[in-house]
């Protein structure tokens, strides 16, 4: 220990000039990042609160809440996000565990399948869905699936969007869960729990999920952000989700639409913080 300490401290001791240089570069990198991210936000904010006729005014912000369609589109998007998170995790986690424990050789196959949506442009994806939805009713008219096809397009809660978003979210959910699974010895934990008498659902819910909380939370963040920002699929299928509503408003009220965009960023950020806080809180309490 005594011999090691000076070696570890040596680079710090070596040159105050070097340290200064590191500090300068660090500050420069942080400054550039801050300019890149914060400048557009600051100018957007300035655009929403200032115009040449009225000068400075926060009026667009209270107007958001009263704007027609804000509440319903926001609630729809949040509901779709929640459903997408549940379905994506419910499909991906058991599949990844099954492959990891029972058929490790299939891992590359699962990885390719889950990351494939990244290389399919949303426009191509939605045109495929559109074709199916258009031709489906004729093909399925005489089968019980006709009702199902109609139900998933219900405007109050279009399940077809959830199905589409699950596919779009798969790469992010897969990556996040894969990182979590790599960090723990899944096989040993499962065998230890099984050997102690735990059933498979008990192992999943009481052993694996708690130890994958960070990965699951990360997957949920990314899915939430994706759904609250996704425009192409919803717009082309004709649903009025939050991003579609923002674009609609932007055509008539420029200041209001930018204010809504800023507010939506803030909401996503707050929701992400809440999810992260919940995860950390549970980790502490467990």
């Amino acid at each position: 220990m005594v011999a090691v300490t000076p070696v570890l401290d040596a680079p710090r001791e070596l040159a105050p000039a070097g340290r200064r240089r590191v500090r300068v570069w660090r500050g420069l990198a942080l400054g550039l990042a801050a300019v890149y991210f914060l400048l557009p936000l600051a100018t957007s904010f300035w655009f929403t609160v200032h115009n040449e006729r009225q000068g400075f005014s926060l009026a667009p912000y209270p107007r958001i809440l009263a704007a027609e369609g804000f509440g319903t589109s926001m609630l729809l998007s949040l509901g779709l996000a929640a459903a997408t998170i549940v379905v994506a995790l419910g499909l991906t986690l058991p599949a990844m565990l099954a492959v990891r424990l029972g058929a490790p050789r299939l891992r590359p196959v699962l990885e390719v399948v889950c990351t494939l949506p990244l290389v399919v442009p949303p426009i191509t994806f939605v045109s495929g869905i559109g074709t199916v939805l258009r031709s489906g009713p004729d093909l399925l008219a005489t089968t019980p699936f006709w009702g199902t096809l109609m139900a998933i397009q219900d405007e109050r809660f279009p399940l077809v969007l959830v199905l589409a978003y699950v596919v779009l979210a798969l790469p992010f959910v897969y990556r996040s869960l894969d990182a979590g699974l790599r960090a723990i010895d899944v096989r040993t934990l499962v065998e230890a729990a099984r050997g102690l008498g735990a059933s498979w659902p008990y192992v999943l819910l009481r052993v694996l999920v708690p130890n994958l909380r960070s990965a699951i939370t990360g997957a949920a963040f990314l899915t939430l952000a994706l759904v609250l920002g996704e425009y192409t699929v919803a717009a082309l299928l004709g649903y009025r989700t939050f991003p579609v509503w923002i674009v609609t408003v932007a055509g008539s009220e420029g200041q209001l639409s930018v204010a809504v965009s800023l507010l939506s960023l803030l909401i996503i950020w707050l929701l992400s913080l809440a999810l992260s806080g919940a995860g950390a809180g549970r980790r502490r309490s467990s």
Partner: peptide, 27 residues
């Protein structure tokens, strides 16, 4: 495996990371 009534200690450390020692033993 869960109905064999055996206790096993593994080569790698197999304690449940999310549980404290008492809860691990009582699992």
């Amino acid at each position: 495996a869960n109905r064999r009534d055996t206790g096993m200690v593994f080569q790698s450390y197999s304690l449940f990371p999310n549980l404290n020692v008492r809860d691990n033993v009582a699992f």
